[in-house]
Amino acid sequence: MSTDTATKPPVGVRVRSWFGDNALKFYAVIAFAYLLLPVAYTFVFSFNDAGRTNIVWQGFTLDNWKNPCGAPQVCESVVNSIVLALGVTIMSTILGTLIAFALVRYQFRGRGTTNLTIFLPMATPEVVLGSSLLALFLNIFVPLGFWTVFIAHVMFCISFVVVTVKARLASLDPRLEQAAMDLYANEREAFRRITLPLVAPGIAAAALLAFSLSFDDFIITNFNSGQFTTFPKFVYVSATRGIPAQANVIASAMFFIALALVLVSQIRNMRRKEA
């Protein structure tokens, strides 16, 4: 046996470990391609010179980007969706955070029932949530519109907020608060200076989640909106006769804005950890 083979891993070992490392990475790349292909399509077709029916590629144009409100109802529905999602975010984040605090920080009777009430909306298909609320509104003759959609969205967002905030809160060491009180902070100060800043990222994540759930919801909205149109509803309704390219412009712009925001915060986090 030569000393050469002793100082380098044998070829077989290197090939096997290269394959083991890279087969999985290759698979992941394909999975990402699958996830992002429709996004790329949406983006590319935002430049389609298609007029009203944006199905087949007709040629490149920047007109859609220059005039995103060019098609009827596009911008109106986007504004509706944003206003709605903002309202839903504020309401559901407040209600959900309060519940999360009660669940993590207090011992009380009825915990099981509460947990079940939080869990069930997440385990119920949207058609059922949508149709049951509609059944209620029809029975008590509530006119459908912005407020019925608002009520519906807050209802299904609460559970997600509770779960997100709860996860953060449960990983928080209660001794930190006790230490603050040991250092002469009263309960309110301990909450404001210690608990709240530490839970804030969880609450922010919950708010973000609520916003995106509300903004992108279609099924529940479709049941309870009446004449009120949100962006997803607008897209679905126009899908039969052709979606204007402006919808792709709006969606692509939202995508890049959101992606940029998240990436910037992630990279900043990475930097902070390294420093």
Partner: peptide, 17 residues
């Protein structure tokens, strides 16, 4: 962990890699 260089043996058996 794989060594950068050198060998590991138990009795006569080379177990480096």
């Amino acid at each position: 962990e794989a060594p950068t260089a050198g060998r590991i043996r138990i009795g006569d058996a080379d177990i480096t890699y």
